[in-house]
């Protein structure tokens, strides 16, 4: 099990061999409230390691809230409450002894709108390693991260240029490089392509498939074709009777998009919802 305790900065290199391809993320009876508003209700799911899991569902069904549970991003919002377990490699991420900063290092996140810092490309990528007091070669980790994000060839001659000067698609890949620089095991992606054109979207999707070789990805997307194209597994959320987001089913993506088990999934993915 990975040590997520406060003050532990151990890198996970040694743990790579211990990966067994089982579940890396899981929730058990997870419910989440914004003050008195129940946003997601009783969600239990396991997400396999080094696979791409897509979360689909109509607006307001709690997909993003669910995603943010895995790296404790929701607790930054006042008045929220969580019940049930959120597990990362067998550790309950909400355990008192777990350091949220360490969790966020291992479970990285990419957002809908590319949000590079108003800094150079280099400094954007180096930001996380510096905060984590990375001891190795910074040039090396910047290059490696930019290469993994399929951006290196486009920016290698101008690393001092502002990250904000890049195109939307490049900015999003810079954000992915920035997330990769702290060597996460999981990448949470919240609508990462919704602000991008089809070509930039294709590049991100290709990149996701490459990254899946050594990390796990959970992507929230409104674009069902995207979920069908990139993911290994798909989870369908919808609004339950109580108005809270519920998990309807999760299965192999191939099955969800050809023969879903639940009529609500069928209605949603065939565009007959509501």
């Amino acid at each position: 099990m990975i040590n997520l305790r406060v003050g532990d900065q151990a890198k996970d290199v040694a743990n790579v061999d211990q990966r067994d391809g089982g579940a890396i993320l899981a929730t058990t009876h997870l419910s989440f409230w914004y003050a008195k508003f129940l946003a997601i209700e009783d969600v239990s799911i396991e997400m396999p390691d080094r696979k791409i899991t897509a979360i689909i569902g109509p607006s307001g069904c709690g997909k993003s809230t669910f995603l943010r549970c895995f790296n404790r991003m929701n607790e930054l919002i006042p008045g929220t409450r969580i019940e049930g377990d959120v597990m990362f490699r067998g550790t309950n991420v909400n355990d008192r002894s777990v350091d949220p900063v360490e969790i966020r290092r291992q479970v990285g996140m990419v957002f809908q709108k590319p949000n590079p810092f108003p800094k150079s490309i280099y400094d954007n990528v180096a930001y996380g390693p510096r905060v984590n007091r990375y001891q190795g070669s910074m040039d090396e980790i910047v290059e490696t991260s930019l290469r993994r994000a399929a951006l290196w060839d486009e920016v290698k001659d101008d690393l001092k240029k502002s990250g904000l000067a890049l195109s939307g698609g490049q900015q999003q890949r810079l954000c992915i490089a920035r997330a990769l620089a702290v060597q996460p095991e999981v990448l949470l992606m919240d609508e990462p392509c919704s602000a991008l054109d089809p070509i930039a979207t294709t590049r991100i999707e290709d990149l996701m498939r490459e990254l899946r070789e050594d990390l796990s990805i959970v992507i929230v997307t409104h674009n069902m074709q995207q979920a069908a194209r990139v993911s290994d597994r798909t989870a369908f959320f919808t609004l339950g009777e109580a108005g809270a987001g519920v998990l309807v089913e999760h299965d192999e993506t191939q099955r969800i998009f050809t023969t879903p088990s639940d009529d609500r999934t069928e209605a949603y993915i065939t565009g007959r919802f509501g």
Partner: peptide, 9 residues
Amino acid sequence: QQPMAGDLR
């Protein structure tokens, strides 16, 4: 139409 599920079948 990019059909899915029962429509695709």
